[in-house]
């Protein structure tokens, strides 16, 4: 069989599939440039002329504010989750302490627990802590990321050689310094891809902020996007422009990191 036509055929096939996956994004972008009345009369496949008006409508709201909220929350969540997961994963992978197996089973069970299970009491607990209408309920619980622990343990087992740790011990290096100065260096690539995922999940989370944030000054990006329809009732052009502005910048950033992100996702599945 001649190779080139086959290659072109498969590429075209995938291009068509790709088109189907990118199309809703494209429509979102295009529809944001139209006046609502025109939007539903024509096929909005080409850019419209109402972009500036829509921009004005969207920026009348505290749009940038929710951007900033989501950004700093996601950064803290990523740092907290990555550090605590790496530490716990390291303990599971490299120390032989009593009850290790039992404790690790707890991690595995936690992986199956739906976030909704403790939600009612969690929200109440946050109120008791005096954390309601702050961002703390979204940030601090990130220290307990069972998925991260599970993943880090798998990774550290193979990626951090025991010989190196032992050599450091012989040279009199303390256990804590060994972790921060030696082990962390070995797991840096995994930390990057895992951190990207944590960032993404934190940024996109909707249910938890919905339950613990009532103050519109504190709202995160998904809350902002969801609330667009409440004050732009019939202004669908502006509403979609808001959705685009709320999602596209992050997507562009992630396209640059997509290699690491994809590597991170796949290492979770392949190691299993």
């Amino acid at each position: 069989m001649n190779r080139i036509p086959r290659r072109i055929l498969l590429t075209c096939l995938m291009l068509a599939a790709c088109f189907a996956f990118i199309f809703p994004f494209y429509m979102m972008l295009m529809m944001g440039t139209y006046k609502s009345e025109t939007l539903f009369r024509i096929f909005a496949v080409l850019p419209g002329d109402y972009l500036l008006e829509n921009l004005r409508t969207v920026f009348a709201r505290n749009f940038l504010h929710s951007y900033w909220n989501s950004l700093y929350i996601a950064v803290f969540v990523t740092l907290l989750s990555s550090l605590s997961s790496a530490m716990a994963g390291y303990a599971f992978a490299k120390y032989d302490f009593r009850g290790r197996k039992k404790l690790f089973n707890v991690v595995l069970i936690m992986l199956m627990v739906p976030a909704q299970l403790g939600m009612i009491a969690f929200v109440w607990e946050m109120k008791q802590f005096g954390w309601s209408d702050t961002h703390l309920p979204l940030i601090i619980p990130a220290v307990a990321n069972s998925f991260g622990v599970f993943w880090m343990r798998q990774y550290i087992q193979d990626a951090v050689p025991n010989e190196v740790l032992d050599a450091a011990r012989i040279d009199g290096c303390g256990e804590i310094r060994i972790f921060f100065q030696i082990a962390l260096a070995f797991i840096r690539p995994a930390l990057l891809s895992m951190g990207l995922l944590f960032f993404l999940w934190s940024w996109n989370d909707y249910m938890l902020p919905l339950l613990v944030i009532n103050n519109s000054d504190l709202q995160t990006m998904p809350l902002f996007i969801a609330s667009l329809k409440d004050y732009m009732r019939t202004d669908y052009g502006a509403q979609l422009l808001g959705v685009s502005l709320g999602t596209i910048p992050l997507i562009i950033v992630f396209i640059f990191f997509s290699k690491s992100l994809i590597k991170g996702l796949s290492s979770a599945a392949v190691k299993e």
Partner: peptide, 13 residues
């Protein structure tokens, strides 16, 4: 030292 490394996760959980 394992307990030191596990402390944040366990406390959080």
């Amino acid at each position: 030292y394992a307990i030191f490394f596990l402390a944040p996760y366990i406390a959080g959980v």
